[in-house]
């Protein structure tokens, strides 16, 4: 397989520098994605990047594709319209954990249920960065946030379990401390014919780090590394060693008819309107 050489061609360099802070993991997630796109040589004119609102959602503006920066929580719903209207397009959603699992949770599970060929990349930093450090549905229990000053009471979602339960046919989790694995998953996801979701664990040193006693990106990546464990390794470990760990790997990769293809067949089959009106 071809290995990615240069990804600068996918960037709108005149839009740089980005609004992202030093040490932010969004660039690492985007870098992995662009290398995956390059590996598969997806034509730029046929790639649509849809994003919602939040730090990660700004990624679309920096990248040279058809880019669609929509409203908070709704990128998957906008993407559904794009994909259905033109199934030939590669429709990718770049979204944050607040965007997809709080305000947009419903759209996420319904797109997964339909198995529509949208690829959803969730930049999961466990915090609302754009608005200044509030807790999200993916903020770990007991972690601090501006709206959880004494530690988060809530239990976070597990995106992969949620995606699987909802019917997504490709489900994986990667992390920025291991960008090569993340890129490989993204390549898989882009090749997948159906709804794919990748939980991309990333770091926000400015808000999450500072409020949780980690002042640098390096410390956060170290923390990430200590907390994560690969799916393959869990098999040989006792249950207590896996408890509270973030498991990375591919949780599901299966073939099932994709929604727009199903709809195409449906039209062939029921395309004759027999009703009088």
């Amino acid at each position: 397989m071809k290995r990615s050489t240069g990804i600068g061609k996918y960037m709108r360099l005149d839009r740089f520098p980005t609004i992202w802070c030093a040490g932010c993991g969004n660039g690492q997630v985007v870098g992995a994605l662009l290398r995956a796109i390059d590996t598969l040589e997806l034509p730029q004119d046929k790639v649509v990047l849809v994003s919602g609102i939040g730090c990660s959602a700004r990624a679309s503006g920096y990248l040279d594709f058809n880019t669609f920066h929509t409203t908070h929580g709704r990128p998957v719903a906008f993407a559904t319209g794009v994909k259905l209207a033109n199934p030939d397009l590669h429709v990718l959603v770049l979204s944050g954990d607040g965007d997809t699992t709080a305000i947009g949770g419903n759209h996420f599970i319904h797109a997964a249920r339909r198995n529509i060929g949208i690829k959803l990349f969730i930049f999961n930093n466990g915090i609302y960065g754009m608005t200044g450090g509030q807790c999200s549905p993916l903020t770990a229990h007991a972690c601090n946030a501006t709206t959880a000053p004494n530690g988060n009471m809530d239990t976070p979602f597990d995106i992969c379990e949620l995606g699987k339960a909802a019917g997504a046919t490709y489900v994986a989790r990667g992390a920025t401390y291991s960008p090569v694995r993340l890129e490989a998953m993204m390549t898989d996801a882009l090749r997948h014919d159906g709804f794919a979701v990748i939980d991309c664990v990333t770091q926000c040193p400015t808000y999450f780090g500072r409020m949780n006693k980690m002042s640098s990106a390096a410390e956060m990546l170290q923390w990430q590394k200590e907390r994560t464990i690969t799916l393959e390794r869990t098999a040989s470990l006792p249950a207590h060693a896996v408890k509270d760990k973030i498991i990375t790997g591919v949780f599901r990769s299966e073939r099932k008819p994709e929604y727009t293809a199903l709809y195409h067949n449906f039209r062939q089959q029921f395309g004759k309107d027999k009703d009088h009106v």
Partner: peptide, 26 residues
């Protein structure tokens, strides 16, 4: 479907208008 168009029942009205805007852009 009879004219090669698309009909989709979305999960709510927010998604419905969003899908329409996305489709129109396409």
């Amino acid at each position: 479907p009879a004219i090669g168009g698309n009909f989709i029942q979305m999960e709510d009205e927010i998604a419905s208008i969003a899908a329409c805007i996305g489709a129109s852009l396409a």
